[in-house]
Computed example of a mutant assay.
Amino acid sequence: MDNWHGRIDDPTDPETFRWHQVVRPMEGSAAPGIALLGFASDEGIRRNNGRPGAADGPAAMRNALANLPVAHTRPLYDAGDVACTDGDLEGAQQRYAACVTGLLADGHFPIGMGGGHEIAFGSYLGLAGSANAGRIAIVNLDAHFDLRDNPVATSGTPFLQASRHAAANGIALDYVCLGTSAASNTRRLFRTAQETGTRYLVDQDMTAAHSRAQVERVRQWLQPADSIYLTICLDVLPHAVAPGVSAPNARGVSLDLLEPFIAATVQTGRVKIFDIAELSPPLDRDNATARVAARLVHGLVQ
């Protein structure tokens, strides 16, 4: 709990409390609540020839969350980290998935803190392995499809891995990618998106003028889902807003344009798990990206 410290306005008045005053270590008998779970890994980024540093993301996110005001009513827990320190990314993803499945079984809402976007395959596996998951929809806010076909898992493969796992195990899966950049995905990746039935909006179509219609389109895409996994790769944001990522985005989608899509997804009432990926503290100027990540988490749990 070393990362949980900050300002105290009044130690006796709950209306002044901040996250560091209410978060508790996860225990087996804990009442259902919000469970923060870190995935301290940048092995997938390394394998994908990206800039490492995201393994430090969970600690930085805790620091950024610690001083935020409490605006939620559910209990808040820190479930610790699953780390990839030996190069065995696949084993770390399996361990992370087991933690997610256990948290869901105990009635918690898991919030994953990356780490590279290789967290996504672990999150998907955790949800897919839970009881009553039913038809799953993945909503990924990301400049990249992350549908690479690679001999080993990387930060660029998780959603093709999920698609293949679902097909092999009789799981109905819909994949929605919002904020896709034509400058960040090859023609092969766009073809893979078509072959896997991926629905997507490119960054240039996510504008204020078209926001209402596009949000409604996403709502329609999500109607068949029984369970939704929402994931945000911070490189969907412009570089000026989120510099601390492996692959900075020259254009990106602004926070005010992303928020209605996040809200519409959460308002379905079927989001079972959420994570934020690619926070890389060594590359983060003035902790700007960590602060954006914390604000996104704060807004989602209210």
Results as ranks from 00 to 15, higher is better:
V152Q: 08
P151L: 06
P158A: 04
A143D: 00
I138R: 00
F159D: 03
V152R: 15
F145V: 00
A168T: 09
F159S: 03
P151W: 06
A167G: 07
D149S: 14
L160R: 15
P158V: 03
N169Y: 11
P151F: 06
I171P: 08
L147V: 10
A153M: 13
L147M: 15
N140Q: 13
T157E: 05
R164W: 09
I171D: 09
F145P: 02
A143V: 03
I138W: 02
D146W: 02
L141H: 04
Q161L: 14
P151K: 10
G156Q: 07
S155F: 10
N169M: 10
Q161R: 14
G156D: 05
R148S: 06
A172E: 14
V152M: 09
P158I: 03
G156E: 06
A162E: 04
A143N: 05
V152P: 06
H144F: 04
R148A: 07
D142W: 00
F145D: 02
R148E: 08
S155V: 13
T157I: 05
D142G: 00
R164T: 10
R164A: 12
P151D: 12
D142M: 01
T157G: 02
A162I: 05
S163W: 10
T154M: 08
F145E: 00
Q161N: 14
Q161G: 12
D149I: 09
Q161W: 07
L147K: 05
A167W: 13
A172Q: 14
A168G: 13
V152K: 11
H144M: 02
